[in-house]
Structure formats: structure tokens, C-alpha cells
Design a protein around this nucleic acid. Structure first.
Lengths: 177, 177
DNA sequence: GCAGTAAGTTATTGGTCACTTACTTTGTTG
DNA sequence: CAACAAAGTAAGTGACCAATAACTTACTGC
């Protein structure tokens, strides 16, 4: 048995949580499933995080943060004229290498909506702030062009949708990209 | 107490199910909540539908079908040159008048992903077929222009996302539309 | 008006799940 | 090496939930 510091364990819990929540959503994921993936007993999760919701929030935040980093890095390494292409390529990379992150994003969106409908506005506020950083990052990278930012993110969201629905890569719904 | 035919009850169950599932998702919605909204006892749902999943499937199908009809009607009444604007206006109408339907669509997407991850491919197949009708409808209305179809649906998906996240209408993320 | 059928209910059951309590194990330090 | 803290577990608890079983109520045709 490998023993870790609480901080390291929290880190692996977050990673496991992203995977599990991405696949089965907030309500559909049991803390048991997360614990199993971490390789730790289920009650121990509640010493590392106060509630299941806190785990989800941490996972959600991490996911948006890392997605932002992927774009930031793509932009950084791109020639000034090829920013849009670089970001599109980054999205492509996410689809093939890290579909988990895109799935998690979808789960975040509906989780916020549910929380909002249930009267919990704090959760939504946190997520909106994190998402805005994504938006602002794209906006800045695209030279402050709002229309282009919207177009870019819109395409991303359609990609998320088609991914969720499980359309195979050679399907005609993908042909307009 | 109002008595209805089974067919009429099924109809009201579907409507209630769309509302409830839209708000709290598949796992987050109890059959009890649906029954309460219909005004009927919870076990009676299982005389009208075999399982909870069947209720969700019926609600999902209905939602996609009606969304398709909204677009079809908008296209029908539009001048030949103004099809795109008419469809955009139809989306606008959905946002303000029927956000429930957009929320339900998000719930459908993640539900398909979860089913797919759990090894159930039948559910996804059904939903993909229904969604393809939406795609083909837009594609046909836009004169077979694949790029434009993609752009249109992409914007729609970003709208769904921003709605789910609960960004107020005057927020800058809406300014690029 | 009564027999049959379709609409609807109450009570229950087996299972799952977030979270708690109380305990054990392992590393560290004076 | 002893004592203390930090990592971790086993065994529950109460709440909720999909689905079933068994029963009751109202309409309808003869």
C-alpha cells in the first residue's frame, strides 16, 4: 500500500473525479466509484473533501483550467497570423487525445443548470467565472474580435455536442468543419 | 379527480417529464417528481411506461421533434432569401419562450454519452437518428450548404451552453451573436 | 343493473448512496 | 523507543428511489 500526503491524495482524487464525472455526470457518479479509481476507501474521500459537491467543484475547476492552458499554450507557440488555426488544432487535439475533458465540460454545463434551478447560485457563479477566463483567453488571442471569438467557441460547443452524441468521425455531421 | 385515457395520460407524462428532466437530468429526476407534476401516483407511471428510461426516451424524442417543428415552421413562413434569419429568430424564440427545450437538449446529450459509456448503444442510436433529422432539416433549409449548416448549429450549441451556465442576457458573452 | 375492463391507488421491497463514527496502521520526532 | 500525528479502514445509518404486488374505483356495453 502506497501512502501519500493528504495534498497528493487530493490531487489524485481530483483526477479520478474528472474521469468518473465526465462519464456518468454528477448524480450518476458514486463517491464509491471515485474512491475505487483512486485506490482508497470511500469514507476517506470525506476527510479530503467536505462533500461530494466539493469534489465535483474541484474537478470542474481543474478541467476548465487545464482546457484554458491547452489553448494558451497553442496560442503561445503559434505565429501571429495563425492563432485561429492553432486554437482549432488544439481543439482537435482535445477531441482525439482527451475526450474526457470535453465530456466533463458538458457535465459541468448541465450541473450548473441543475444547481441554478435548485436555487444554488454560488456554484454557477464560480463556474461562470472560470468559463469567462476561457472566453477572455480566446477573445484576447483572437485580437479582441468578438464575432470571431463567438464563432470559435460556437464551433467548439458543436464539437462537444457531436462528441457526446457519439457520431463517428467519418459521419457527415463532421463534414462542415 | 379527473380521469383520462391511458393515451392522454401518457401524453401528460411526457410533457411533465420534459420539464423535470430538463431541470434535473436523468439521474437527478425521480419518477416521484414526474408523477407529482402529472398529478398521479408514482407507481401508475409504470403502467404507462415500462421503465424510467422509456419515459426519458419518449421525452427526449418529443423534445427533438418539437424543436425540429419550430424550425420547419420558421422556414416555411420565411422568404426564400431570409431562411437563415428566420431560423435564427426561431432559436431566439426558443431561448426566451421555451428555455426548457434547450435545457432538455443538453440533458439528452450527456445522457447519451453516459449510456454510451455504460455500453448501451441502442439509446444513442435512437437519439442520433432524431438529431440527424434536425441536422438534415437545417441542411435542406439552408440550400444544402454544409458549412453554413455547421455554423448555424454551432451557434445554437453555444447558445445552449451560455443558457445552461446562466449568463444574463446583457452579459458580454452574448455580444457576438 | 350488472359484468367486465380500464384507470388509478396504497403499501412494500430490495438496492443504492452520501456521509458518520469509531477504530487501526504507519511514519516521524524529541 | 515512546508518543504523537497523520493516513487510512470497517462497519454502519438514514434517506431516497425504481419497480412490484395487491387492491379499489369508475366507466361502458349488453
Amino acid at each position: 500500500m502506497v501512502r501519500m500526503s493528504a495534498e497528493e491524495r487530493r490531487e489524485s482524487v481530483i483526477r479520478a473525479a474528472v474521469t468518473e464525472f465526465a462519464r456518468t455526470g454528477y448524480k450518476g457518479t458514486s463517491t464509491e466509484a471515485i474512491a475505487r479509481r483512486v485506490g482508497v476507501s470511500q469514507p476517506y474521500l470525506f476527510r479530503l473533501f467536505p462533500t461530494k459537491e466539493a469534489i465535483f467543484l474541484a474537478a470542474a475547476h481543474r478541467c476548465l483550467e487545464e482546457t484554458g492552458k491547452v489553448f494558451a499554450k497553442a496560442v503561445e507557440c503559434a505565429p501571429p497570423r495563425g492563432v485561429l488555426q492553432a486554437m482549432a488544432a488544439a481543439y482537435d487535439h482535445l477531441i482525439t487525445e482527451d475526450p474526457e475533458k470535453l465530456q466533463m465540460q458538458m457535465q459541468i454545463y448541465v450541473a450548473v443548470a441543475s444547481a441554478e434551478a435548485a436555487g444554488d447560485h454560488e456554484f454557477g457563479r464560480t463556474i461562470r467565472a472560470a468559463w469567462l477566463e476561457l472566453w477572455d483567453g480566446a477573445h484576447l488571442a483572437l485580437g479582441g474580435d468578438v464575432k470571431e471569438t463567438t464563432r470559435f467557441l460556437a464551433k467548439g460547443m458543436l464539437i462537444n455536442t457531436l462528441m457526446s452524441l457519439g457520431f463517428p468521425p467519418d459521419h457527415r455531421v463532421w463534414s462542415g468543419f
